[in-house]
């Protein structure tokens, strides 16, 4: 399956796909996209990397990848960001917005060019959920790939 054409295409395309996915995750509160979509894009880039390499190479590449840790950090971080709203307000209240913290800049009302330093908890939740979706989908693809290759032997 791993011909020279696939390997060369992957070498050219995979960095672009990964960077595009990270852009979608980071700009989730400004442009179309968000954590789920960006995580799926990053996972598809990693799937391209998985498919284009030999079985042994994939195993040694992803042996140390902290996928389950990333998934747990994403879930707990999402929950924790939601719990932040309990400090005086309700669950999932956007407390960081307009507070001056990171991602807490003043949000203009109406049509604006879009400033990255706004969004409050939404930006954090986008990042955490993107991490979680990325790790989950990549581990699904990885375990299917490893199982099917083991079965062929």
């Amino acid at each position: 399956m791993t011909t020279t054409i696939i390997k060369t295409t992957t070498r050219l395309l995979a960095p672009l796909i990964l960077v595009f996915g990270l852009y979608i995750i980071l700009h989730g509160h400004l442009t179309p996209g968000g954590g789920f979509q960006g995580g799926a894009v990053v996972a598809s880039g990693l799937a391209l990397l998985i498919v284009a390499h030999e079985h042994k190479k994939v195993k040694e590449l992803f042996e140390r990848a902290p996928l389950s840790q990333l998934e747990s950090i994403g879930a707990l971080g999402f929950l924790g960001t939601g719990l932040l709203g309990l400090a005086g307000y309700t669950f999932f209240k956007n407390v960081i917005a307009n507070s001056g913290f990171l991602f807490g800049g003043k949000t203009p009302i109406g049509i604006n060019p879009g400033y990255l330093n706004t969004g409050g908890t939404l930006a954090y939740m986008n990042i955490f959920v993107g991490m979680k979706v990325l790790a989950g989908l990549t581990s699904i693809i990885l375990i299917f790939f490893l199982i099917l290759k083991e079965g062929e032997k």
């Binding site: 400004l30 442009t31 179309p32 109406g110 049509i111 604006n112 060019p113 879009g114």
Partner: peptide, 10 residues
């Protein structure tokens, strides 16, 4: 989406 939307979208 309000980012760079056309005038009449608001």
């Amino acid at each position: 989406i309000y980012t760079l939307a056309p005038k009449e979208a608001a």
